[in-house]
Every structure is written in C-alpha cells, then in structure tokens.
Design a binder for these strands. Structure first.
Length: 460
RNA sequence: GCGGCGUUGGUGAAGUGGUUAACACGCUGGUUUGUGGCACCAGUAUGCAUGAGUUCGAUCCUCAUACGCCGCCCCA
C-alpha cells in the first residue's frame, strides 16, 4: 500500500470542517483589521531563505526541503511565510505604494524536514500577518492583539502571551557578549547542548529545558538591562499600547526566537490547556527591520506573526470548544424505482439551486437502509418519493425531528421548506458556542472564588 | 540527525510457530413484498504494514524498510 509521506496529514470529514471554520474566522478578523490576503509561491529560490532566515539557523541548515528543478535552479519549499512576503513586497515595489504600511495576511502550507512528533509535522499549515513599512510601536501592539483576538474569536481561553525585546543590533551584540562572559567560567556546569550553544547562539541557553532549574540561568544577565535607551523606550511604548488594548502579557526574557531576522519586539503565544505536549507554542513573531534590505530591497521596518493551524485546532479540541459546524442536511430524498430515482435527481438539483442542502441515495440501498442513511446525514426533513404522489403533483415530506408527516403540493415545496427550516433557528444557535461564565472579579491578582469556571489571571 | 514504543477487516481490538484469525461496533440482507431507527437471524479479514531471512511450516522468531505515536535537538 502506498502510504502518505512522513509527517504529512490528510484532513477531511469533520476535521476539514473545523479547519474551514477556523480559516473563516481568520479571514473575517483579518479583514476587520484591514489586512489584505496575499498568496506567494510554495517554493522560492533557496537563496531567499538562506539570506532571509539566516545561514546558520537550524531551520536553514538542516530542515529545508531543497531541490534542483529541471532547469538546474536551486529551489526550497518554504519553511515559513515571512521571507516570501518580503520578497514579494520588494519585487513588486510595494514600498512605492503611497498607502503605507502594507498590511497583509497569508494562510498556507510550510515544509520543514524534521522528525514528526506531537504538534510537529513536515507539512504544516500556518496563517500569519505582516505589517511592512512602519516602525511605529502601535503596529507591534496591533499585531499581537490581532493574534490574540483571533484566538479569542475562536473561543480559546487558555492562552498566554510572552513578550520580550531583543533590542537593536547594538544592544543585542552587547548582551550577547555579556552572556558569553557570564557563562564561560561555568560552562562545565551546563548540559552538552548548552556548551555548544555558547558559541553558536548563547541566547538559547536561557531557554534550555535541561538546565532550566540551574541557578546559573536564573541569575544570568537580562537583555532588558542591556537595551540602549532607544530600544528600551520603544519596548516601553509597545507595552503601553498593549495595556491600552487590554492584552494580557508577561515579559519573558527567555523568548528569543529561532530566526536571525528578528530585532526589538519578539513574542510567543502558548496554549496552556492540559495535555498539549511538548510543543505548546501556538504562534509567534516579532519585528524584523532589516530583512527587506537583506534581500535587496530598501530598509523597511516590519513586524509579523505566524501561527500553526494544526496546533490551533488541537487547542480548540483540548479546550472542548464547541464550534458552529454544520453537520446536517435540509432534506434527504428516498426512492425505490427508476422513475422515482429520476425525479429525485431532478428535484435535488432544483432544491439545491434554490439554496437548500439536499442529498439522495446513490448505492441502491433498501428503503430501510435509506432511512438509516438519512439519520446518519442528520437530515432535517426526509421524503420518500412515490410515483402515485408525484402523478398527483404531490410529495409526502416528513420532519425527521418531530416525525410529523405532511402531503404538500410540489408547487409550494420550496416555500414550505423555507418556512419550516427558518423556524427554530434560534434554538440551533444556542448550541453553537460553549459559553463559560465571565469572571466579574475586580482584581486580577487574587485567588478567584467567584465560583465561575473562569480563567482570569490570578497568581497561582 | 538521536532515542523509546508501536503497526492485526470500515472501526475498537483479542490471539497463536501448525488445518476454519476471538469478541464488539459498524455495514449489507432477511424476518417485515414501499415509512426506518427496537428485536432476532444471516453475511461481512484467502488476511495480521512492506520485503527478505530462520523453519517441514511464520500474523507470531530475526533483520531491513516504510509509516504512526512520544521525547531530544530545534521549532508553529
């Protein structure tokens, strides 16, 4: 049997409906923030990722799907979305558009050659947004709040926003040097990986899982103390705007991100729901003011965010959030003989074009089995076509919930269905969202005893 | 790239070096000749991821490969 490629998934059935719903919320929310949709190629020249993401990053050195095309060109399946968007911004001279900044969002598959595990696939779907052409801290705050609001619109409650600032190049170099100086005398106390990190990327040591309880890490220099005045000022401004937008966050000096192009604001949003596994970051992003110039465009200040849809769907499942997924049909048409079948085919089309969700029988089932099929499809109405009725221009239609059956004229069928299906809509909407009681506590920092199943930020 | 565990019908799974691979759900048909969901009866894997090997004989033992799950590195 031919199996699917390692780390890739087929998404179908109910899960596909969840994905489509999630994507519809993303589209709708992005639209409200006036981000426009952008589609860029799934593969780009290898050079773009090497220059953009960074030669020495793991993602480029060992995780890309590279290939040489038939014309001998070096190509790479995109491992992330930002580099392609920047390339498009530069190549299409969007910087010349008077309408700045350019605010775009994307949603597509990315590819990373990694060993699959919980929350990590080789083909993954990410949505993300980028603001290109503004250095204003308000864009930093807006991108973070937009991300949070998408999660909120989907009903997620158990999320946590961690932010940090890497400062500008000067601050970062300064800090890097300080870290190396600090760790060097104690290097033998750290795990093997960290010893390697000291030269390669000392910032990563702070995020080590093995050494996370080592007091050495706790007392390490903090980047905040190494930010120059300008960097510090802008970080304060970002926090001020976040407070204004009522985004709850924590400053986490360990958020450093894996891609070279970030500076100043970096952030991650994690799922806090139990059972998520090792990879609990739903999304992350940051500011990248030098990427565009790095790939041959003008120096352009930018900020962006990307989030894995697979992980997001998983978080929704673990939080048991009920989504408005339509898994019912309006009418199932049943028949026994060929004439009735033909009429079923004809009538199905008429009703579908009139706006109803209609299905019928295609596998030659017995009438009894057709009833079961109608139930499996969650048909709101069912009708057994009967030659005699049809000759009288009538149809016998049954409400599959109340079991009430009526004989009506075929001439009024559309109006009948329309009327019947529109009653009880409210009742249906009641089931859409799994509403939890809102917390009305005044103080966020206390042990909540309001009795609600709420998730306000107390000190735990 | 490194490590651990796994893979048996449509599904959940039991099981054994030796003729017919449990059980349950589901599905199909019948009892009931065109208004069902219950009940009862019957049918439903020439097959145990793939390929080699050991053996008189392999789903079972060995090896390799593929894929899955979980962790590490790293990352969404």
């Amino acid at each position: 049997m031919i199996q699917r490629p390692k780390g890739c998934n087929d998404i179908y059935g109910r899960e596909a409906k969840i994905w489509k719903y999630v994507e519809s919320i993303i589209d709708a929310t992005m639209e409200k923030y006036n981000y426009t949709y952008i589609r860029t190629p799934i593969f780009e020249s290898t050079e773009l990722f090497h220059r953009g993401i960074g030669e020495s990053t793991d993602i480029v050195t060992k995780e890309t799907y590279d290939f040489v095309d038939r014309g001998g060109r070096n190509m790479t399946l995109r491992p992330e979305g930002t580099a392609g968007v920047c390339r498009s911004y530069v190549e299409n001279k969007m910087y010349g558009d008077p309408n700045q900044p350019v605010k775009v969002y994307y949603n597509g598959t990315m590819y990373r050659y990694e060993r699959p595990q919980s929350g990590r696939d080789r083909e993954l779907t990410q949505f993300g947004m980028e603001v290109l052409g503004s250095d204003d801290s308000l864009t930093d705050a807006e991108v973070i709040s937009l991300a949070v609001n998408i999660y909120k619109m989907l009903g997620l409650k158990e999320i946590k926003v961690n932010i940090n600032s890497l400062g500008d190049k000067e601050s970062r170099d300064h800090y890097r040097e300080a870290l190396v100086q600090y760790f060097k005398p104690h290097i033998q106390d750290l795990c093997e990986d960290c010893q390697a990190r000291l030269e390669k990327n000392p910032l990563r040591i702070l995020d080590c899982k093995v050494d996370k309880d080592n007091p050495l890490l706790k007392n390490a220099p903090k980047i905040i103390d190494y930010l120059n005045d300008e960097s510090k000022e802008r970080f304060d401004k970002v926090k001020e705007y976040l407070d204004l937008l009522q985004v709850k966050y924590e400053v986490d000096p360990n958020v450093v991100r894996g891609l070279d192009y970030y500076n100043h604001t970096v952030f991650e949003i994690e799922a806090k729901v139990a059972g998520f596994g090792a990879n609990n970051v739903l999304g992350g992003g940051g500011r990248y003011n030098h990427l565009c110039s790095e790939i041959g465009g003008p120096e352009t200040p930018c900020i962006g965010f990307a989030s894995g849809i697979g992980r997001l769907v998983r978080a929704l499942e673990l939080e048991e959030i009920k989504l408005p997924i339509v898994d019912s049909i309006d009418l199932f048409l049943m028949y026994v003989n060929e004439d009735e079948k033909k009429y079923a085919a004809y009538l199905s089309q008429e009703l579908r074009m009139a706006g109803f969700i209609v299905d019928t029988e295609y596998t030659g089932r017995s009438l009894k089995a057709q009833f079961k099929q109608a139930d499996r499809l969650n048909a709101k109405f069912i009708a057994v076509l009967n030659s005699e009725d049809l000759n009288n221009n009538e149809i016998k239609i049954k409400n599959n919930k109340t079991k009430q059956e009526e004989i009506i004229s075929l001439d009024v069928l559309i109006y009948y269905l329309d009327e019947q299906l529109n009653t009880g809509v409210e009742e249906e909407y009641d089931n859409f969202f799994f509403e939890k009681d809102e917390c009305h506590c005044e103080d966020d920092h206390h042990d909540c005893d309001c009795g609600n199943d709420c998730h306000c930020h107390h000190d735990k």
